[in-house]
Design a protein around this nucleic acid. Structure first.
Length: 467
DNA sequence: TGAAATGTTGGGGCG
DNA sequence: ACGCCCCAACATTTC
């Protein structure tokens, strides 16, 4: 083969890219193509933040390609039609792409493979879902045995280096990469492979050995914050795992090893949910647990709007939602708290929260996001039991003990003393006035009483689960 | 990767 | 000195 297409989907990187490497093995001219598929990027599950992050990522990828004598071809439309036309224009004899296991991608790729020479190569996850089953071929639905199998498998070869040189692509029409001005998130998460690598190095050189003790603290940078980069493949799962293993090999103290293992576990959760969605694609639409598909949600639109805007009157919830809206990212602990609050305290369907998170999150991934929501709602595989209801006040005291997280994202509460910060409605009116934060005026009254809401949701869930 | 309700224990105040 | 009560601290059960 002389010319092939490298079809880029969620692998915006040159290093450790097995699809690109395979394309280069087959041909000397490789055409890098990204197709803006309106079915994906104009859907109700995408917002300006992730679209902007994608477009910035494409710009960064194009820059790296140009440094190597190549360039990115951007097209828009139905992938089958675009690829068919491109194959004719370029006389490409093959298409190489990283395999994507989400339902839409599988359906799309199966259809394309019927009429075009599409070759799918692994890389989104360390292991493909086909091998992550029980001995009898059944998929796992519980995390712990799944993770035991995952850890027992050898992570084959080391990450591939980026190719040093690529041949110039033939004269082909390419759209300009559009601008996406309405996303202020790039000041928090700069897109692109170099930034992803820089962050991975920083994390594995420093914070990873504190991860077990700091990962739940919303006021600290205890997490890796790599999820947006993993989502679009500016970083590969294999690069992350190898970097972690390197730390593990050098670690002396058992706490350090624990921390690295804890972080690895999070990467395994990612593969768990990818595998769950592969075998149970219906979870995108309904509860995994059949007995929790008829919950009588309240779905009050005004209450949903208050939650989205960070105006519930519960400081930790509001801080988290405002962090999400401002940056396109939310701390994992805060995701559990806000999800618990939406589903259990406000009795709003987890699918509403799932969709809003998909719209706002840079890392919005159908498998992980759905898994997280169904876990919190208690409807999913290996989920939290339905009666596990987070108390937003206690969660705030535990995981934002100084209140720095709340004060950063909810400036109205900046001057509220820490002993009132997570339940500011308990402030005497005198103190409220003194601090310039009158509840109901400068900051909302709590939208619901947590003690009442807890009892209410237990009744609602219990009624359903016993049907 | 919860939190509330309930049960148990033991120290100290006090008649 | 003794029994009683209170309640904090911790453990267990329940949702």
């Amino acid at each position: 083969m002389k010319t092939v297409i490298w079809w880029i989907r969620r692998d915006l990187r040159l290093a450790d890219n097995q699809a690109l490497a395979e394309a280069l093995r087959q041909a000397n001219t490789v055409i890098p193509v990204f197709i803006l598929d309106p079915k994906l990027w104009s859907s109700e599950f995408v917002g300006p933040a992730r679209l902007g992050f994608l477009l910035d990522g494409l710009r960064a990828l194009d820059a790296s390609l140009r440094e190597r004598g190549s360039r990115l071809i951007l097209r828009k439309g139905d992938p089958l039609e675009v690829l068919r036309a491109l194959c004719q224009e370029s006389l490409a004899e093959g298409i190489f792409a990283e395999e994507d296991y989400s339902p839409y991608a599988r359906q799309r790729d199966e259809k394309i493979a019927l009429s075009l020479p599409l070759n799918l190569v692994p890389g989104v996850t360390i292991f493909p879902p086909q091998i992550l089953t029980k001995a009898n071929g059944e998929p796992y639905t519980v995390f712990t045995p799944f993770s035991r199998l995952w850890r027992s498998l050898p992570v084959s070869s080391s990450p591939l280096p980026a190719p040093e040189h690529l041949l110039i692509v033939p004269e082909l029409l390419s759209l300009d990469i559009p601008a996406q001005p309405n996303h202020p998130t790039d000041s928090f998460f700069r897109a692109g492979e170099p930034e992803a690598q820089r962050r991975l190095t920083y994390f594995t050189d420093s914070n990873i050995i504190q991860y077990a003790s700091t990962r739940n603290r919303m006021d600290l940078d205890g997490t890796s914050q790599l999820s947006p980069y993993l989502r679009l493949g500016m970083l590969s799962a294999r690069q992350a795992v190898w970097a972690a293993r390197k730390v593990l090999d050098a670690a002396v103290k058992p706490e350090d090893r624990d921390s690295v293992e804890t972080w690895l576990n999070e990467l395994i959760w990612r593969e768990f949910y990818s595998t769950i969605l592969y075998y149970f694609p219906f979870v995108r639409g309904k509860a995994f647990k059949a007995n929790l598909r008829q919950i009588l949600w309240r779905n009050n639109p005004a209450v949903f709007s208050a939650w989205k805007a960070g105006l519930t009157g519960y400081p930790v919830v509001d801080a988290a939602m405002r962090q999400l809206n401002a940056t396109g990212w939310m701390h994992n602990r805060a995701r559990m708290i806000t999800a618990s609050f939406l589903t259990k305290d406000l009795l709003i369907d987890w699918r509403e929260g799932e969709r809003f998170f998909m719209q706002q999150l840079l890392d919005g991934d159908p498998a992980s996001n759905n898994g997280g929501w169904q876990w919190t709602a208690g409807t999913g595989t290996d989920a939290a039991p339905y009666f596990r209801v987070f108390n937003p006040i206690l969660q705030g005291k535990k995981f934002d003990p100084e209140g720095d997280y709340v004060r950063k994202w909810v400036p109205e509460l900046k001057n509220v003393p820490i002993n009132y910060l997570h339940a500011p409605w308990e402030m005497p009116l005198e103190v409220q006035k003194q601090m310039g934060c009158v509840i109901g005026h400068d900051y909302p009254d709590p939208i619901v009483d947590h003690a009442m809401a807890r009892k209410r949701v237990l009744l609602v869930y219990r009624g359903q689960s016993q049907d």
